[in-house]
């Protein structure tokens, strides 16, 4: 139901982001999607990767503050209004989207990663509305 997102705390300093990517490269970990906002002091780098567990271990070893978070990977048809429709389910249920970013998809339709305030409830809700959620295995099979 959920997939593991790797979240890394990085100071807003020259070269810090590159150091994270270097660690992942050394471990032969592929990055499928990522999100990073511009903030003045520090940032949270959120990554969907081919091996989140190994990525976290390697980053921790190199002195990074890294954690795994359960997020939803939602598959949606590439058409006007589909994302709005899915979000309307979420909003009506009184749930909040904490963050969201796009996931590249080779299959021709669209997909997003999102963290919703109550993840379990959101997952059940979306499934009941026949919204397709990717599993960790799907991610490896389809995106890598």
């Amino acid at each position: 139901m959920f997939i593991k997102q790797l979240s890394v705390f990085i100071e807003n300093q020259e070269g810090r982001l590159e150091q994270v990517l270097e660690v992942l490269k050394q471990e032969q970990i592929n990055i499928i999607s990522l999100s990073l906002a511009d903030t003045s002091e520090y940032g949270l780098l959120r990554l969907i990767t081919s091996d989140p567990v190994a990525g976290q271990a390697a980053l921790k070893k190199q002195g990074f503050s890294a954690m795994l978070t359960d997020v939803l990977a939602v598959r949606l048809a590439h058409q006007v209004g589909r994302l709005q429709e899915i979000l309307s389910f979420v909003c009506k249920a009184g749930l909040n989207v904490e963050y969201m970013y796009a996931l590249s998809n080779k299959e021709g339709d669209a997909s997003i990663i999102c963290k919703i305030s109550n993840g379990d409830e959101a997952a059940v809700l979306l499934k009941s509305k026949e919204v397709e959620l990717y599993s960790q295995e799907d991610i490896l099979r389809i995106f890598c």
């Binding site: 949270l44 890294a66 954690m67």
Partner: peptide, 12 residues
């Protein structure tokens, strides 16, 4: 040093 990893800006 941040030792407890976080995932959302709000917590930071």
């Amino acid at each position: 040093e941040l030792v407890k990893p976080v995932d959302v800006y709000r917590e930071l």
